[in-house]
Design a protein around this nucleic acid. Structure first.
Lengths: 257, 257
DNA sequence: ATAATAGTGTCTCTCAGACACTATACC
DNA sequence: GGTATAGTGTCTGAGAGACACTATTAT
């Protein structure tokens, strides 16, 4: 049962002696899970991947993709694994969000959930396995009822405009993710993660407006983005747009796990 | 062994039926701990409470106060309990920081640590039980070797100016806490938590300067603080200062767990 | 030519930084 | 009065918002 029986050679001798006698099973332990809020911007709406629960508890309700943390994988790796197995997505921007640990948040047993959020271009979402017509998966609209980063309730809405009930405390997790990215947007170039490699400033501005839930000033936005030094003009223009084409930009570096 | 045997009456009938058959012990689980970075500002230095480990592993190294999460307590409650039992402090500002889950961060076994940070007035630290001359407790200086919120290494230094080696990944946790409060200071009134109920603007500015590790503009600081609406002038002045006394202010509300 | 959006130049307003000045306590 | 800090008034520079204007492509 012990996760690491092999003594670590870098430990001091008395550390090793201690390990021999230590009995981890003497203490009752909670389960630890990761839940991932996969966010994308599509058609001017903030959207997230939800999976319908087919088993108890909360069968039929919608939940964030998640899974239990393996004994030999770090939290980051567990979150990336969940993203790959449940959404078919690899090498996506992924950051830890918050850890939810209320005693009764899962009726089965004590489950502590380390929540992550991921940002991904909508085109990748469409191309991934989750695009297959699976009635138990949906990329739901996220309706946010508050301004700025004050926080508050959110609602997931399905393609047919019907509200989707969320299992456990997943509405709180989703709301926390929205609050976090709204706050991060003010001082980090997080919006790039939601766009393809090349994009126009107009598209980037639309992403910001969608996340923030309000219009932003076009001139100031352009100036601020270009002054940040994070953007690289490619010299090429978009095409087939029916009006004057805009220049395509790239983000200088692209974080991924 | 199961944490909650009593059926929850609010559950649907099939949820209850599921609970009867669910066997949480089928899966191996990690241990979950909380570690608390207790920060205070004293004599122009950022300081934190450290406890010397008297048992293996890492006996003799210094560690953040911490403890395992009980099966019937939430993470917030566990952190507050640690603060009370290990530092004798109650009703202190306490917020979740980050969750550390590298597989080998603890050589004994898989331990996932949910880190919290707490901010407290130095006078309370001095009055608490931890002031008792315990050679295994120290309020150490935190030396920060980087500017702004870029992050980097930190070092804990004892009263005799000797560096204190930290156990496990506690240096990383401490550095994460410093990074977090530096960032929060830019847009939230977090500095109040490190001062007594009544304080002068000068003291508040000193706290900000200590946390940020740099001087801040006096005029702009006063204007910004007074304009924030978070401060309430008491009308009384400090006394016995040997020069013109400053007005005492209060923070409008004081968060605590 | 017309429509539609890309992109720029400029003015103003707000706010932070800098600095000088006055105010008020203890000695 | 001397000294030290509290607190204010004002100038300046940086950056966001607003708005007008030019540029460029498809139809």
């Amino acid at each position: 049962m012990s996760p690491r029986r092999r003594p670590n050679p870098s430990l001091a001798a008395d550390d090793r002696a201690f390990l021999e006698s230590y009995r981890p099973d003497d203490y009752e332990r909670p389960s630890v899970a990761v839940d991932v809020v996969l966010l994308t911007v599509s058609e001017g709406a903030l959207r997230t991947l939800l999976i319908r629960r087919t088993e108890q508890p909360a069968r039929g309700a919608w939940s964030l993709p998640g899974g239990f943390v393996g004994m030999a994988e770090s939290l980051d790796v567990a979150a990336a694994r969940v993203l790959e197995t449940k959404a078919g997505l690899k090498r996506i921007f992924l950051e830890q969000l918050y850890t939810f640990g209320h005693v009764k948040r899962d009726p089965r047993m004590r489950v502590i959930s380390v929540a992550y959020y991921a940002l991904v271009d909508e085109a990748i979402v469409r191309g991934a396995a989750l695009a297959s017509s699976d009635a138990n998966r949906v990329v739901a609209d996220v309706r946010v009822a508050w301004d700025g980063i004050v926080g508050g309730p959110v609602q997931a809405v399905g393609p047919n405009r019907s509200p989707l009930p969320l299992a456990f405390d997943h509405e709180e997790i989703l709301a926390t993710a929205v609050r976090r990215i709204r706050g991060k947007l003010d001082y980090t170039p997080i919006g790039f993660q939601l766009l393809p490699k090349r994009f126009t400033l107009r598209r980037l501005q639309e992403v910001h407006e969608t996340i923030l839930g309000r219009a932003v000033n076009k001139d100031a936005f352009r100036r601020r983005m270009l002054a940040s030094g994070q953007l690289h003009a490619t010299g090429t223009l978009e095409d087939e747009v029916g009006h004057r084409p805009a220049e395509l930009y790239e983000f200088r570096e692209r974080a991924a796990i």
